[in-house]
Amino acid sequence: MADTPGHYVTGFSSSEWTGNALKDSGSIWFGTGFIAFLLCLLLMIFIPPLRSVSAVLWVCNVTAVLAMIATIVGNVQREKRSLTKMTDQTNAFMAEVTGDPNARITRGRMQSLIVDKKRGLELQINGVPGLEIKAVPKDEKSTQVRAILTRPDYGLQSFDVLLEAEAERTP
């Protein structure tokens, strides 16, 4: 982290936001379906309608789909909360640094900053470019959103050359 320039704005770990809410949904469906199948085999002893193969398959599939939907909805809500928190922290930082309360980003723009780590969001401070908000990986399990402040090029070096040339020209 020592070689990462900029001011830390916010960050997240891979458990807070993965960008893929459907991750592991197939294994959840299969695992829940298998457990439901074992439960149906046990319940066949006591419930005669479960002695049909189609009834067992129907119960297993419905149970697996409901468990998968519940898991996906939970993941989506958790990731939205995390992304909203990061967006709010970034917007508060941007308003403080730029002095412009309208300098805000949306949750979708924050998501695109995180997904496309090469591109950043360039902002102006009092009308002068010099701030870039960028998502940079801290390690393999976490990412940080950093603000990189750059000094604007006012062309002072060329102004100094002109002053020196004028000083040499004048006796």
Rank of each mutant, 00 (worst) to 15 (best):
S158M: 14
P49T: 05
M1T: 08
K138H: 02
A147G: 13
R81V: 00
Q89N: 11
L113H: 01
E164W: 12
V161L: 15
V145K: 05
I47W: 15
N61P: 00
S52F: 08
S14E: 08
A70G: 13
G11Y: 01
D3I: 15
R78N: 01
D153R: 13
F12S: 01
G120E: 02
A165F: 11
L156I: 11
S82C: 10
A55L: 13
G108N: 12
R169V: 04
V97F: 07
V53L: 15
T143L: 03
L156Q: 13
T18D: 04
K134M: 12
T150P: 01
F46C: 08
A21L: 00
L162P: 04
Q111G: 03
S112T: 10
L113I: 04
R107P: 03
G127R: 07
E16D: 09
R146P: 09
W58F: 15
G127H: 02
M110L: 08
A21M: 00
T32I: 04
G11L: 07
G26Q: 00
S54F: 14
Q89C: 03
K117D: 07
V115Y: 04
S27Y: 01
V9W: 03
W58K: 13
V76I: 07
K23C: 03
A64C: 05
L57A: 09
P49S: 08
I45K: 12
C40K: 09
F37P: 00
E96G: 12
A67V: 12
A103D: 14
A92I: 08
P101T: 06
G155K: 06
N102T: 12
A147Q: 10
Y8F: 15
N91M: 10
T170I: 14
P171F: 11
L38A: 13
N20R: 03
A103F: 08
Q77M: 01
V76Y: 00
I125G: 03
G120R: 03
F12W: 02
G26R: 01
L123M: 13
A64N: 04
T143G: 00
W29V: 06
S27M: 02
T63S: 15
D160W: 14
A70Q: 07
G130Q: 06
T106M: 05
V145S: 02
F46I: 15
F46H: 09
L131I: 06
E132N: 14
C40V: 13
T84M: 09
T143A: 01
A95Q: 15
P48K: 08
L123K: 07
M110A: 06
Q157M: 13
R109W: 06
A2K: 13
N91W: 12
A2L: 11
E96K: 14
G6V: 05
D139G: 05
A103R: 14
I28T: 10
N126V: 09
T71M: 07
P101I: 05
A95W: 07
L38T: 08
T63E: 02
G26I: 00
V53Y: 12
M94Y: 00
V53C: 07
L43V: 13
G33D: 04
